[in-house]
Design a protein around this nucleic acid. Structure first.
Length: 552
RNA sequence: GGCUCGUUGGUGAAAUGGUUAACACAUUGCCCUCUCAAGGCAACAUUCAUGGGUUCAAAUCCCAUACGAGUCACCA
């Protein structure tokens, strides 16, 4: 019996050849330097910040080079597939507006190189496996789980290298007859790659982020096709798909680095050109004193839900991720504040080699800047859209007071030095609740400062509201009147003079306005009081005074 | 244990043999100021994991040690 006959026994229904597929998926006709990249998540968990970083890098790479960005669903591990994971991936890509040009979703295939779901490509993989068996570079292996465990245990104990190689590859030299006999007897088997590598020989591999790295050759006979569902393993699917889809650059996590010798031998065996590799560093997390890989379970910010629920602007999240991904992004961003992130000339060489800690403070800072640059109307719309989805209570209130909310958001905005007090939409209401009458139906804590006496406060408020406040006043007129009244009541209107002799006065003009601020908002820190008064109007100010009288 | 990579301030990092180790975030202080925010100005690594070596000169090159990370599945 020949290898060819064995291959036919295992894959009786495979009639196509590799050449057929080469013709079906020809080289893409793109301009010089165009990068063909892919986002290839496996739906075994919900998309996290590491996946997202990879997607962003791919998107930028394709965009800046005039290439192609496609999505491939790597669902070869059927047992661990998580419901909703795929939907969430598409949701995130849509939400951040980084959709790939080619993909397959809900029975819709976009692109000429599909199917883009690995479980639908099984015939293609089998064609390639079959060829490998025919030329004697792959073989069925009948080792059971128990036998495998035994081998590993022995290797560990005797401090040998772990894996199936050399004498441990017991089925490697089985004759086709013997193999066929056991298959016909119904024995379970996987297909293993027959490695010709020599662990004592080295080869040099060039990674685009890490530079030249010397590896020992691969000599492990790894499984390329699983028993049971007959799906390929990652390594084999990578070879077949990235070749047929004509990928030029593979962006993947650093955990794949150590598989490079295997992939190198696989590509060499078929005579395929290897894509270039960009191995990205892991995103880490500081947990007490130890630094570890960011964890989906322990760190809420690891999952992409987090940023959406908190209401971070999408572009802020993207910038924060690129800041980690590429060390010169920040500088580029300061020099090009108005450019789109995808115009950034991403450089794999500038990627951090060791893992970066994801810094939520930095995200907040970036996000505050983004939000500060939005117009009040834009900010309101984003805020409202967020609230509609994530906080119905807030939504009901702000949509009821749309005009007032926009006015409030507009305080000290749209100037050269806008306020930067919101890092995300979820934080806005906490800093503006007092503008809404409905929100006053809770326990009220007045944060008065120097002046605390109820009588004095009422006196100030009544005098001011009845005889001084005029909605038509400009801010200067408004402030002059406040100064006038505060002097009349025994306060000092000049901060410098006050600081020289604080004991000569009841307080300063700052203490004086604090009284008004706290009665109107309960807080001692708010944006410009003048604007707040303008928005509230006299009637509501009186109303707040009544509440004060009752509750303080 | 084998293989591979890494180790610059609280964080992200620049500097790729040559003056006082960029910059950003965070923190702290001061100024401005009706509070806050913003803004302005300062402070913050006597030192680049440790020890050797090469050199007139090293965070940068070499070696060793320590520590950390990844990987060694019919998981991706």
């Amino acid at each position: 019996m020949t290898n060819k006959e064995l291959a036919n026994l295992i894959f009786p229904n495979i009639t196509k050849t590799i050449e057929d597929y080469e013709k079906l998926y020809p080289e893409r006709n793109l301009k010089e330097g165009a990068k063909i990249v892919r986002f290839a998540p496996s739906p075994t968990g919900f998309m996290h910040i590491g996946n997202f970083m990879s997607a962003i890098i791919n998107y930028v790479l394709a965009k800046t080079s005039g290439g192609v960005f496609y999505l491939r669903n790597e669902d070869t591990d059927q047992a661990r597939t998580v419901d909703g994971a795929v939907d969430f991936i598409y949701h995130v890509l849509n939400y951040y507006e980084i959709m790939p040009q080619e993909y397959e979703y809900q029975d819709k295939i976009v692109g000429e190189y599909g199917p883009y779901i690995q479980s639908e490509r099984i015939e293609i993989y089998h064609t390639f496996v079959k060829y490998l068996i025919e030329i004697g570079r792959a073989y069925p292996c009948f080792l059971t789980k128990e036998e495998l465990d035994e081998i590993r245990e022995y290797q560990t104990k005797s401090k040998k290298r772990i894996g199936i190689y050399g004498k441990y590859a017991k089925c490697r030299d089985l004759s086709p007859e013997e193999a066929a006999k056991r298959i016909k007897a119904g024995e379970k088997f996987v297909i293993r790659f027959k490695s010709m590598g020599d662990f004592n020989k080295k080869f040099v591999f060039e990674d685009l982020t890490q530079g030249k790295i010397e590896f020992p050759e691969n000599d492990l006979d790894v499984p390329i096709m699983k028993s049971g569902d007959l799906l390929p393993t990652y390594h084999f699917a990578h070879l077949v798909d990235d070749h047929l889809m004509r990928t030029t650059h593979v962006v993947r996590g650093n955990e794949w680095m150590s598989s490079v010798p295997l992939h190198y031998e696989l590509f060499k065996t078929f005579g395929f050109k290897m894509p270039k590799y960009i191995h990205t560093s892991l995103i880490l997390k500081k947990d007490g004193d130890t630094i570890r890989k960011i964890s989906k379970r322990k760190d809420p910010e690891a999952l992409m839900f987090y940023y959406e629920e908190k209401g971070y602007p999408t572009l802020a999240v993207i910038d924060a991720v690129l800041t980690i991904a590429n060390s010169n992004f920040e500088e580029w961003r300061t020099n090009n504040p108005d450019k789109s992130f995808y115009e950034f000339p991403f450089s794999p060489k500038k990627m951090s080699v060791s893992g970066a800690l994801f810094d939520l403070d930095k995200l907040d800072n970036i996000s505050k800047n983004y939000i500060s640059k939005m117009s009040a109307v834009d900010l309101y719309q984003n805020y409202e859209a967020w609230a509609l989805k994530y906080n119905k209570e807030v939504y009901d209130i702000i949509s009821n007071y749309k005009e007032d909310t926009i006015k409030f958001l507009n305080i000290e905005r749209e100037g050269k030095k806008p306020r930067k007090d919101y890092a995300n939409y979820a934080g806005i209401f906490d800093k503006s609740w007092y503008m809404y009458d409905e929100a006053w139906n809770k326990e009220i804590n007045y944060n008065f400062g120097k002046v605390k006496e109820k009588e004095e406060i009422i006196k100030i408020m009544e005098e001011y509201l009845n005889n001084y406040y005029d909605e038509k006043d400009s801010q200067d007129e408004w402030f002059n009147k406040i100064k006038e009244l505060c002097v009349k009541m025994g306060y000092q209107d000049n901060m410098k003079l006050y600081k020289e002799n604080p004991d000569n006065y009841k307080g300063s003009v700052a203490d004086f306005t604090t009284v008004m601020r706290v009665v109107l908002t309960t807080l001692d820190m708010t944006p410009n009081l003048y604007d707040i008064m303008q928005i509230l109007g006299k009637d509501r100010m009186f109303k707040r005074l009544e509440i004060f009288k009752e509750k303080y």
